[in-house]
Amino acid sequence: MRTDDFWTLIDQARTGADGDVEAVAERATALLAARDVDDIAGFDRHLRRVLAASYRVDLWGAAYLINGGCSDDGFDYFRGWLITQGRATFAKAVAEPDSLAELPVIRQAAVTGEEFDAEAMLSIADDAYRRATASDLPADPNPVPVPELGEFWDFDDEDEVRRRLPRLAALFLEPPQE
């Protein structure tokens, strides 16, 4: 599956979902299940590539700040949510995690405490394949390698967070004490 095809399917699933990530996952699953099995496997492979491209310590730091903490699985689910936001938002957030501060839903979460995750987005291909064939999606013979994260920084160090993610820190952290 080509990149454009992957994101077109995500956009189709987003249409009419009104930001409901469970609805996006369900719609994407239904759309994918209607395709041939090679497309389903291709979607899964592309999803793994997208997740690998977003496996970055700076994005993890942003997720940690936004969600008030973020485990390994939580980071996966956050990136699932990020996929539901569409290609442009996803690409911008991967390139510059602090750009998430521009999203109205993130700005609102700074007040409401809403957390962002979409675990169901990670199993779209598995669920679609099961619907289409009544069997499990075969393992990819050439799995996408997970990149090295790089050096972690202390996500609880508010000064470091302010330095690395200034716009998000302005939303989610108390002003520095004088």
Rank of each mutant, 00 (worst) to 15 (best):
residue 3 T to N: 10
residue 4 D to C: 08
residue 6 F to Y: 04
residue 7 W to F: 05
residue 7 W to Q: 04
residue 8 T to V: 09
residue 9 L to D: 07
residue 12 Q to M: 14
residue 13 A to N: 08
residue 29 T to F: 01
residue 30 A to E: 12
residue 32 L to N: 00
residue 34 A to F: 02
residue 37 V to Q: 14
residue 38 D to A: 15
residue 43 F to A: 02
residue 44 D to C: 08
residue 46 H to T: 13
residue 46 H to K: 13
residue 47 L to V: 06
residue 48 R to C: 12
residue 48 R to D: 15
residue 49 R to T: 11
residue 49 R to Y: 05
residue 53 A to V: 05
residue 54 S to L: 02
residue 55 Y to K: 02
residue 60 W to A: 09
residue 62 A to L: 08
residue 64 Y to D: 09
residue 64 Y to I: 03
residue 74 G to R: 07
residue 75 F to R: 06
residue 76 D to F: 15
residue 83 I to K: 00
residue 84 T to E: 01
residue 85 Q to H: 07
residue 86 G to I: 11
residue 92 K to T: 09
residue 92 K to D: 11
residue 93 A to P: 06
residue 93 A to H: 04
residue 95 A to M: 07
residue 103 L to C: 05
residue 104 P to L: 05
residue 106 I to C: 07
residue 106 I to S: 10
residue 106 I to R: 02
residue 106 I to V: 15
residue 107 R to N: 01
residue 111 V to M: 14
residue 111 V to K: 13
residue 116 F to S: 04
residue 117 D to N: 03
residue 119 E to M: 14
residue 122 L to N: 05
residue 122 L to P: 04
residue 134 A to C: 07
residue 134 A to T: 11
residue 135 S to H: 15
residue 140 D to N: 10
residue 141 P to R: 11
residue 141 P to M: 09
residue 141 P to N: 14
residue 143 P to E: 06
residue 144 V to D: 05
residue 149 L to K: 08
residue 151 E to L: 15
residue 153 W to K: 09
residue 153 W to V: 15
residue 157 D to Y: 04
residue 159 D to L: 01
residue 169 A to W: 04
residue 173 L to N: 13
residue 174 E to M: 12
residue 176 P to W: 10
residue 178 E to L: 14
